[in-house]
Structure formats: C-alpha cells, structure tokens
Design a protein around this nucleic acid. Sequence first.
DNA 1: GTGTGAAGGATTGTTCAACGATCCGGCAAT
DNA 2: ATTGCCGGATCGTTGAACAATCCTTCACAC
Lengths: 239, 239
Amino acid sequence: MTDDSPASGGVRDALASLAASNTVVVPAAERVADRIRVEVAEARLRVGARLPEQALGEALQVSRNTVREALSQLVAERVLVRIPNRGVFVARPGADDIRDVYSARLVIEPGAVRHGPRAADPVALAAVRDAFEYGRRAAVTGDWTGVADANQHFHRAVVALAGSPRLDREMGRLLAEMRLVFQRMPGVREFHEPYLARNGEIAALLADGRRADAADELAGYLVTARDQLLDAYARLPTT
Amino acid sequence: MTDDSPASGGVRDALASLAASNTVVVPAAERVADRIRVEVAEARLRVGARLPEQALGEALQVSRNTVREALSQLVAERVLVRIPNRGVFVARPGADDIRDVYSARLVIEPGAVRHGPRAADPVALAAVRDAFEYGRRAAVTGDWTGVADANQHFHRAVVALAGSPRLDREMGRLLAEMRLVFQRMPGVREFHEPYLARNGEIAALLADGRRADAADELAGYLVTARDQLLDAYARLPTT
DNA sequence: GTGTGAAGGATTGTTCAACGATCCGGCAAT
DNA sequence: ATTGCCGGATCGTTGAACAATCCTTCACAC
C-alpha cells in the first residue's frame, strides 16, 4: 500500500469501479451475434432459414469476415447449424435433440433444487415465485406468448438456485433450443397451460423448504413434458 | 417413400452411412482450435501465456483470420481469455471461477448419478469402475499424471450416466478449466491421492444400485475437494 | 419420360494486404 | 518520482481476391 491519504478507501473504490466499467466498446462480431440471436429467439428468423454471409454483411453494414465470426459463435451455441460449403441455417432440432436436451435438464434442474446453495435464499425463491405469478396473470389474459416467456423465466430461476453463472449460461443455451422446438409445434397455448399449476406447486414446495419433494415433482414434470413433445413431434410432417 | 426395391433397407443404410462419413475434411479453424486445445491441456502453453495471432498463423501455416476464428471459439469455451486490443491469453482461473465450477459440478455430477437413465447400464457402470481401476494402478506405479488423467475420466464417466452428449460436452469444458487450475497448484500428487479411495467407494455404491448414497458421497467429495483447492489457492503468490 | 452429363452461376472457405485504434515501453522534461 | 510524449507492436475490421464446392439449368441420349 503506497496510499496513505485519508480518503484512500474512496479512491480505491472509484478506481475499481472505473476498471470494471472500461469495457465500453462491444466488438462488432458480438453485436452481430446478439442481433441474430434475438431475431431467432423472436422467430423472425424461422427454423431452417438460411443465413447468407454476404447478405447479412450488407444488411448489418459489416464485413463478411465479421459476419463469419458471429455465425461461428452461434453455431457453437447450437442456435445455428453449418453445413460445409452450403451455408449456415437456423437449427432444426429433431427428436434426438429433444431427448438430449431433456436428459440434460433432468440432471440440471432437479440437481439445482436439491444441491443448490441458494435454494434457501429468499430473493432467489422470490424470483421463482414471481415467474410463476407472471405466467398465471398472463394466462388469465390469454397472453400465451407471455405464458411461454414466463415458463422460461421459471426454469431459469430454478437453475439460478445453484448460484452458478456457468450453469445459468448452459441453461440459457438449452432454453434457446427449446424455443426452436416450439417454433415447429402447433398449439403452444394448450401445451404450456397445464404446466402452470405444476410450476405453482413446485414454487410452493420450495417455499416450504421441501427441496427433495420439489426436485421429484420437477423431474416428473420434465418427463411428462418431454414425452408429450416427442409424441407431438412424431406426428409432424416429415420435412 | 419412392423406393420399392426389395433391398431398400440396405440401400438406405448404405446411403445413411455415406452421408454420415462425408465430413472428411475438417475446417482449418477447427483444426487450429483442436491443436491449441491440446497444447493447453498438456500444459505446453502455461496459464497466463499470450497467444499472438500473427505468430500462431505463421507457426501453423494458416491465415490470421483463421487463427482469429479458432481463438474466438476457445475464448467461448473459457480455455482462453481475450483482453480487448491486448490479445488472448491462456485463462487464469481465480477463486471465483473455482467456486463456480464446483457449484456446477455439484449439480451435474450427483444429478447424473441420481437421475441418469444409464445409471443402471452395465457398460456405463463398467466405464466408471474402469476409470477408478486405472487410477489405482497408476498410483501404485507412482504415475501421478496418470492418476490425474484417470480422475478426469472417472468424473466424465459419472456424467455419462446421464446419457446426454450435451451434458458430456459441458462437463468436458468444466474439466478443461480444472486442468488450468491444477497447473497453478503445487503438489498435484498428494492432492489426487486421497480421493482415489472415495472414487472406489462411489463406484462400489453404484454397482450395488445405491444411487442416492452414491450421489450423497459424490457431493461430499466435491465439497471437500473444492474447499481444499480454495485453501491452497488462498496461500498462492498473488500474481 | 427418365436418367445422364456438361456448362453456368452462386456461395462458401481461405488467404492476403491494408488502415486506424489501442496499448505498452522507453525517454525526456519537470 | 511523476508526468507527458513518442515509437513500435498488436489488435479490430475492412475489402478484395481466388479456388473449391454446390445447386440449377439445360441439352442430350436411352
């Protein structure tokens, strides 16, 4: 410590704050990736759509190399799929992908409930309950998009009980794939509706501290949803 | 179906096989990424080392753009860290990273044991036991690098009980970070040795079908290892 | 009519060269 | 010892170029 002025603590805090906020400029490739991610999430880029590099570069006023970097990143996130010498497309998850995603969720979500250090943290539990309440309100107003969003928030909040940013990111990737699955599904409305009650029950069990019961209920929930999705997928036009 | 020949099944299989094997050429960027990944894993590229784009391009006979794409991918995998306008470096995990990685492992590994559909699959269980046995044999010959490798295989095999390639990949990323942590740790030998016995106990519990007990043992194992690592990290030179 | 095969065009994979922006190190001046 | 300035190196990004590959179209033969 070479600092001995009376206000040294304040100075150090100010310096730390500046050091943390010096990432003012966002790289171009990342901006492009974020933009495409949103377009896919909001279903403006439909499943299976092709993304030509040159057209994207002109549309976003950015070089083809930069576009390429952004696309590679999204391919790594499984949002897009690259077919060599053919281009990149919005991923089209198949039955195998659904099985895999739910296998992962069956490990992560009940695991977060059971072993999460924040599973007793009031603010983390409040986030779970809030997501459920938001979905309930959206349901009564017939806002089925809102119900779907709330459901994603619910599961995100459940994983947040683990208190691990890395796990949060992975869950975000899995939920992004789920959005692609739902794009191909007819009748998202009646799909999400019956799960609202179970979300509420899980939130209640968590509030009561009955973590093992909540984990079991969550696991059963996921198995049911997976099987229903696979069933609906099987009777989809085979394109 | 426009195919009605008697041997249509065989033809379809042959076509599927060909379609699966038509990825003969590996993109240059991916090859570079694989190469760097190995160099880091084998500690030829030490923690904190810098990777200049131009030098890498010349060394690997590849363009700087290609190098850049590979580096971006490795940054996304948290093997490398990019500091804007300064370059990319081999990641230097801190105490926060250790806590986060273990939070994620505490969810994934016991979760895979508890909810994994392959936790009763003989070949998956054999893989767990084999990893333990391999480590035991390495220990008696004093091959501590082999012990460390076997330990990674053990935990990888545990996660494989979930039967999810996506989860396997994520576990691979977490274990890659663990290798970086161990690079900075003195005395990896005596670190891994006491955990061999617990690996054996977990394998035995799994073989007996006592999955809940195995999960609990595994969770305790991870908490102990994490605390020991954090303790050792705290008394490390603060560079 | 169906299948074969040969141009033609479009897109990707990869490279190269260039320029401004930014950061680091050293050196002089205060 | 601190400040200010300069040069060198590297990064971020662009633009253009070329071969390789794929799709489409079309003509042609059976």
